[in-house]
Design a protein around this nucleic acid. Structure first.
Length: 361
RNA sequence: GCACAGGUGGGUGAGUGGUUAAAGCCAACAGACUGUAAAUCUGUCCCUCUCAGGAGGUACGGAGGUUCGAAUCCUCCCCUGUGCA
């Protein structure tokens, strides 16, 4: 899942995302809540319609911002008080509020509001944090079950559609047609437990007791060594039902996502391909390429000779390096397109491998 | 020709007697980036050594001079901009 925090994958338009084969995007409760605000999203017919995207959207709950906006927030049993990173204004997110926002946005997959535990953290802190996340998970589920699919814009937007067509010569506007009418929404629970295998197991078991159609492994990629990430992922995976989607949050490099997918992870999201692209770091079949390096200034070869994305088919390394060095917007766009293509191709290949393996076995 | 203003490291631009190898910014070069406060951040950036803490050399248009000490003060010269002839 490419990350489109603010309702946009930075640098890449929705039509290109479709062309790349993106099936689901991640977007973010906290950020969209601050801007444009849920009310605007509702009036525009939900997030799908607003951003003209008719494929799936998963919204992160804001739990990660509890972690990343450490200096701007205060956590209590009830929820989290934030100071907006945009203008300093005070805001409040609770399990119920996070559900309300995500339902209102019309997300296909809604994430439970959790506390992403920092690393390192002492044993008591990890346990307390995990317990809080569990209590919040129960509250999320309760609120969600009562209110899911309450998307006032769904009927309204159907109405708008049937009322349309008064001007037959007017061009079709994509957002009029490319939006979800299916208000089915699912809520996923999130396992925490820090870097402690026993707590991870307990968190998994108790989250399963609450009961969700899918489960996420959260609280990783928070600064811990990569081997530790792997150990915790693998051990947590064992305690989650394999017949439900298992979603590993915030991971990883191409090698990591391939490894985790083979281990049984069904979904992943990561800002790495998009952010690294904007910073000139490209993933290729030959390893990482830092396209800003002087050695590529006159390199006529393709970024990745084995890649058939539109960027690798059309532009040389020398040109990509020049765009980056010149601070051209196009550098970010092209780099992002390539990295997303590389990630998606990696996953396609892993899927094919798994299918072949299943067929053989 | 006269009158002002000015010449600082790859660029721009601070600094107007010592704590200045010389701020800041840019460029250049390298590194980081993993549920996005990220078109961001970090480091290097005169030369030569280095046991990596430092040591030495050269440097603020040029040449002299004053001074314990000069990018900073003085003299002459060269150059640039503006105005007047």
């Amino acid at each position: 899942m490419p990350v489109g925090t603010l309702g946009s994958v930075k640098g890449v338009s929705q039509d290109v995302l479709e062309e790349l084969g993106v099936e689901i995007l991640l977007s973010n409760t906290y950020h969209l809540f601050l801007r444009p605000g849920v009310e605007t999203a509702r009036r525009m017919g939900g997030l799908h319609r607003f951003m003209s995207w008719d494929r799936a959207i998963l919204t992160d709950s804001g739990g990660f911002q509890v972690f990343s906006l450490n200096d701007l927030r205060k956590v209590t049993e009830e929820g989290v008080a934030f100071r907006s990173h945009l203008d300093g204004s005070a805001h409040y997110l609770s399990p119920e509020k996070a559900m309300e926002i995500q339902i209102g946005l019309g997300a296909d997959i809604v994430m439970a509001f959790d506390e992403c535990t920092e690393y390192p953290a002492d044993a008591q802190r990890v346990r307390d944090s995990m317990e809080l996340t569990l209590r919040w998970a129960a509250r999320c589920k309760k609120y969600f079950e009562e209110r899911k699919g309450e998307v006032p814009w769904a009927a309204e937007s159907a109405e708008r559609r049937s009322a349309g067509g008064t001007n037959a010569s007017a061009p079709t506007r994509a957002w009029e047609t490319r939006h979800h009418t299916d208000a089915t929404q699912a809520l996923f629970g999130i396992v925490q437990g820090g870097m402690d295998a026993a707590l991870r197991r307990e968190s998994a078991a108790r989250t399963i007791d609450i009961g969700f159609p899918g489960y996420a492994i959260g609280g990783l990629s928070v600064g811990e060594p990569r081997e530790l990430t792997r150990d915790i992922v693998l051990t947590t995976l064992e305690h989650l039902p394999s017949d439900r989607p298992r979603y590993l949050m915030g991971v990883g490099t191409p090698e990591e996502i391939a490894q985790y997918a083979r281990a049984g992870v069904d979904m992943m999201d990561c800002v790495l391909p998009t952010r690294a692209a904007r910073h000139g770091l490209l993933f290729t079949s030959e390893g990482k390429v830092s396209i800003k390096q002087a050695r590529y200034a006159q390199d006529e070869s393709a970024l990745d000779p084995a890649c058939e994305c539109r960027v690798c088919l059309r532009y040389s390394r020398a040109y990509l390096r020049h765009l980056y060095a010149s601070n051209e917007l196009l550098a970010q766009v092209l780099n992002t397109v390539h990295n997303l293509h590389y990630y998606l191709a990696t996953m396609r290949s892993v899927r094919a491998g798994i299918r072949a393996g299943n067929a053989a076995g």
